[in-house]
């Protein structure tokens, strides 16, 4: 989109925020891995670890594919 003015594609911003969130959530999941929160149902499935990893990968892919290019 917006090729006429060389606007950074919206997908880059989407990827960036998902990448940052993914890292934060993944690190939180690793830190709490030995003692997952007791008041969270199914916490033994360690959702922050794999969901954070998924977000990081998805976001990273978008950042890479739609990164601003020199013209």
């Amino acid at each position: 989109m917006a090729e006429n003015h060389h606007i950074i594609p919206v997908w880059f911003f989407v990827g960036l925020i998902l990448f940052i969130y993914g890292l934060l959530i993944f690190i939180t999941g690793i830190v709490e891995f030995p003692h997952p929160p007791a008041d969270v149902v199914l916490s033994k499935l360690h959702a922050p670890v794999w969901w954070g990893a998924l977000l990081t990968l998805f976001g990273g892919l978008f950042v890479f594919l739609f990164r601003p290019k020199k013209t």
Partner: peptide
């Protein structure tokens, strides 16, 4: 709140 701990809860609220 039932399924999301720190981090994931922030994402849901965001």
């Amino acid at each position: 709140a039932r399924y999301c701990g720190p981090g994931l809860l922030g994402l849901g609220i965001t």
